[in-house]
Design a binder for these strands. Structure first.
Lengths: 159, 159
DNA sequence: CCCTAACCGGACCCCAATGGTCCTGTTTGA
DNA sequence: TCAAACAGGACCATTGGGGTCCGGTTAGGG
């Protein structure tokens, strides 16, 4: 089904959430328990997602008491490809690419040798062209949109 | 990893193989055992793939003795999206789309409501734009192309 | 007329990867 | 000094895909 991991879905939710109320001041870090209660995603899962996002430098972490997470870039500068790469690893459709030491030994017969590269690039391109800001905008009509102005989001790394 | 099923990979191999030596006359059907030995893919798997492709009308089947499969369209008219849809079902990245009766119950909080649609469409577009003919062309230089005319395999009763 | 080759459409099992949880550090503000 | 929160693991359960097999049906050939 060409499905992508549910964790990635959560990551998008978390990132958007992170942008939703980080507007005021950049120091307004959010804790993973807080995000968990806000989004309904179980806390350990949120923590796991945030760790991965932090490792990919999509979010910044503040350790210790009063710690938390905050976005490292605006939603405009985060593409879907970035998120997928952060959570699921590099975008590669086939096992033929990496672990080629599998069944493709019979490369004289296996005719797909590297053919999926074309497809991989196409998908990479398609995914890189969509930002989280676009995803947020493309959501439910706007009848559901939180009434807050949310322009202040970009006023982020004010520091 | 956004990976697509290995079956789809096999399907591409099988389809290209089907095109390799069906050129002469359209009646030159190939049997799944024959394709299996030619491609190195286990026979039951080839059969399974061909069944799915047949159900999707990508190939035509001829039952009975001297039966087999042959392409229903040229490789130019078969997109990667067609193959993926035939094997893995409709292209939809998230479980949120179909089985929405899952964890997304809290749609007031779950902020991704239908946002992946944008991504799905982008991927659909990217995949629809690549034909199997392109994939075949994009293969290894041609220095690796099997030198044999590969007709020998088709030596099944030339009838 | 029967037999065999091949497709058809299931059911079936095994395994790996994912989703999800938890526990033990380590950091840091109050 | 303590508590809150991140870091980085290890750890299980489950799902779905990969792969196999079997009975049934069709149709050409002896």
């Amino acid at each position: 089904m060409l499905r992508l991991s549910k964790l990635t879905d959560y990551a998008v939710v978390v990132l958007i959430r992170l942008a939703e109320l980080a507007p005021s001041e950049s120091c307004a870090v959010q804790t993973s328990p807080g995000i968990a209660t806000a989004t309904g995603v179980p806390e350990p899962t949120v923590a796991k997602v945030l760790k991965a996002l932090s490792a990919a430098d999509l979010v910044l972490s503040q350790r210790g008491a009063r710690g938390g997470y905050r976005l490292n870039r605006t939603l405009n500068d985060i593409s879907v490809a970035d998120v997928i790469t952060a959570i699921d690893g590099p975008i590669a459709l086939t096992a033929c690419v990496d672990g080629a030491t599998g069944s493709c030994e019979v490369q004289g017969l296996c005719a797909v040798k590297g053919r999926w590269d074309l497809v991989n690039e196409a998908i990479q391109g398609a995914l890189s062209g969509i930002s989280l800001a676009q995803m947020r905008a493309a959501s439910v009509p706007f009848a559901f949109r939180v009434p807050d102005p949310l322009p202040a989001l970009s006023t982020f790394p004010a520091e």
